[in-house]
Design a protein around this nucleic acid. Structure first.
Length: 431
DNA sequence: TCTGGGGTCCTAGGACCC
DNA sequence: TCTGGGGTCCTAGGACCC
C-alpha cells in the first residue's frame, strides 16, 4: 500500500473558534488580534476581502473595522487550545497515527486506506469535525508531508473541491503544480522565493524539476529535501510522539512603556514564574537563563537600549523561586539608573536553550538544592493554580495578577467558554 | 613559490513556520 | 496613544584540541 499523509487544518482557526460560540458571527468579517491587541493574526474570508492583511497593526485598521462592522477579538488561547484538543480527538477516531503539528494543523497517516477510499474518508472526517466541534476544516492528501501541504492549499483555494484534495496521483499532481506559485510551497519563504524567481523558477513544477543536489548551493539541504518531497520521495517522517523540546521562552510586550526598575523586576519575576510552570509541566529543568529587556524600535527619537544577559544557576532547576532569583540578578547586573530622558522599555523576556529532564540533570557535590521540598512546594502551587485558575497563588515578587499594571492587554477577549466553569455559556430555550 | 589536517563545540544570524 | 509570541533548523566563523 502506498504512503499517504493527510494534512487537516482549521479554516481561519481562531476566528472559527469564536464563531462556534456566537452564531451571529456567521457571514460577518471577524478578526483575532495578537497579544496586547497588537496585530491581526487571524481573519475570516470576509475580513480578508476587506483588505485586512496578516500581521497588520490594529491601530491602522481600527477605523476600517468600525465602519465595516468587523467583529474584533483579543486572543483567547485557553479557548483555542481546548478546541484544538477536541478536534484532535476526532481526528484520532479516523486515523490513530496523528502528528499534532500546530494548534490548528495535524498530519494523519492514511497509508492503510485504499487510494480510492481516501477522498470519501476525508469528506467524512471534515463533516464529523464540523458536527462534533463546530469547526470548519480543509484536508489535503499526498504521499509526502510537503505534498499534503500543497494539497491542503489547493483544497482551501479551489471552492469546487469542497474542502478536500487528494494528490496521490502523480499525473494530477503535475497538472496542479504548473499553475501554483513557488512561494506557496511549505518551507519556501520570502528570501528563497526571491532567489528562485531570479533563477527563473516561478512555479511549483519548476521547483520540482530542479536537480536536488546542486539546488543545495542556493537553498541549503532544506531546499534539497523539499524538491525530493515534491517528487513524492518522503524526507520528513510523521512524528507521532513529539520530540523533546529544545528551548523555552517567556517574552511579553508591556501594555505601556515602563521606566521604573521595580516594575521591570516584577515583570521578569512574573515571566520566571510562568517559565517554571512550563518547565514543570514537561518535567524539564534549566541551568542558565537569558534575561532581556529593551526599548521599542517604533519609538523613533527616544533613547534606545537593548539588554541581554545570561545568568547561570548553581544547578539545573525548574523551581520558580530559583528562576525568579536568576531573573532579578539579570536585571541587577544590567540596570542603568534613569536620567532626565529615561529609557522607555517596551518588552522583557526570559529565554532558555539548555533544557534537560530534571531527573537526568547532574547534582552538585556540595550544597545541592533540596529537590524533594522544592518539588512538593511547586506541585502544591501548580495544583492550586490548576484548580482555581492561573495566578491564584503566585510568588510575592511576581505580584498579584490584578496589580500587574504592565501586563499584556486583552481588552476584547471572549469568555473561556470551555475551560472555566464560571464562563460556560448560558442557553435559554422558549417552549 | 606554496600555507597541515581534521575534529568538536559554541555562538550569532538568517530563514522559515504557525 | 496604539506594531505578538514561541518555536525549529541550518550555516558560517571562531576557539580550541590533537
Amino acid at each position: 500500500m502506498s504512503r499517504a499523509i493527510a494534512l487537516i487544518d482549521g479554516n481561519s482557526f481562531y476566528c472559527s473558534c469564536e464563531r462556534v460560540f456566537d452564531p451571529k458571527l456567521a457571514g460577518v468579517p471577524v478578526i483575532v488580534l495578537s497579544n496586547n491587541d497588537g496585530c491581526a493574526i487571524a481573519r475570516t474570508a470576509e475580513a480578508k476581502a476587506l483588505g485586512i492583511r496578516m500581521g497588520e497593526p490594529y491601530f491602522k485598521i481600527r477605523q476600517l473595522c468600525r465602519s465595516k462592522g468587523v467583529r474584533v477579538f483579543s486572543s483567547n488561547y485557553a479557548l483555542y487550545g481546548d478546541m484544538s484538543a477536541r478536534a484532535n480527538t476526532v481526528y484520532r477516531q479516523f486515523a490513530p497515527d496523528v502528528e499534532i503539528y500546530s494548534i490548528d494543523e495535524s498530519f494523519l497517516d492514511l497509508s492503510d486506506v485504499r487510494e480510492r477510499d481516501r477522498l470519501a474518508l476525508a469528506r467524512d472526517l471534515r463533516s464529523t469535525v464540523r458536527q462534533w466541534t463546530g469547526l470548519p476544516t480543509c484536508v489535503g492528501i499526498g504521499p509526502t508531508k510537503t505534498l499534503a501541504k500543497l494539497a491542503n492549499h489547493i483544497a482551501k483555494t479551489v471552492p469546487e473541491l469542497g474542502g478536500v484534495c487528494d494528490l496521490s496521483n502523480e499525473a494530477e499532481r503535475a497538472a496542479w503544480m504548473v499553475g501554483i506559485s513557488v512561494g506557496e510551497v511549505w518551507g519556501i519563504g520570502r528570501a528563497s522565493r526571491a532567489r528562485l524567481e531570479a533563477m527563473g523558477v516561478d512555479t511549483v513544477a519548476d521547483l520540482r524539476d530542479l536537480d536536488p543536489r546542486p539546488a543545495r548551493a542556493s537553498l541549503t539541504v532544506v531546499g534539497e529535501r523539499i524538491i525530493h518531497e515534491l517528487r513524492g520521495r518522503a524526507c520528513l517522517p510523521l512524528e507521532i510522539v513529539p520530540a523533546r523540546r529544545k528551548g523555552c521562552a517567556v517574552t511579553r510586550s508591556f501594555s505601556s512603556r515602563i521606566i521604573e526598575r521595580t516594575v521591570l523586576e516584577q515583570a521578569v519575576a512574573a515571566h520566571a514564574t510562568r517559565l517554571g510552570e512550563k518547565l514543570r509541566r514537561d518535567g524539564l529543568a534549566v541551568s542558565a537563563v537569558t534575561v532581556f529587556y529593551h526599548t521599542s524600535e517604533h519609538d523613533r527619537g527616544d533613547p534606545m537600549r537593548s539588554v541581554s544577559t545570561v545568568v547561570h544557576l548553581p544547578e539545573a532547576t525548574n523551581d520558580s523561586r530559583h528562576l525568579i532569583q536568576a531573573a532579578l540578578h539579570g536585571v541587577a547586573k544590567t540596570w542603568k539608573e534613569q536620567g532626565p530622558t529615561p529609557w522607555r522599555y517596551s518588552k522583557a523576556g526570559l529565554v532558555t536553550t539548555d533544557l534537560v529532564p530534571l531527573d537526568e540533570a547532574p547534582r552538585p557535590l556540595f550544597d545541592a538544592l533540596d529537590r524533594e521540598k522544592s518539588g512538593a512546594l511547586m506541585a502544591a502551587m501548580d495544583a492550586c493554580n490548576s484548580r482555581f485558575g492561573r495566578g491564584a497563588v503566585v510568588p510575592a515578587r511576581a505580584g498579584l495578577m490584578e496589580k500587574r499594571t504592565w501586563s499584556t492587554k486583552f481588552e476584547m477577549r471572549s469568555p473561556r467558554f470551555t475551560t472555566r466553569l464560571a464562563e460556560v455559556p448560558a442557553v435559554s430555550a422558549i417552549m
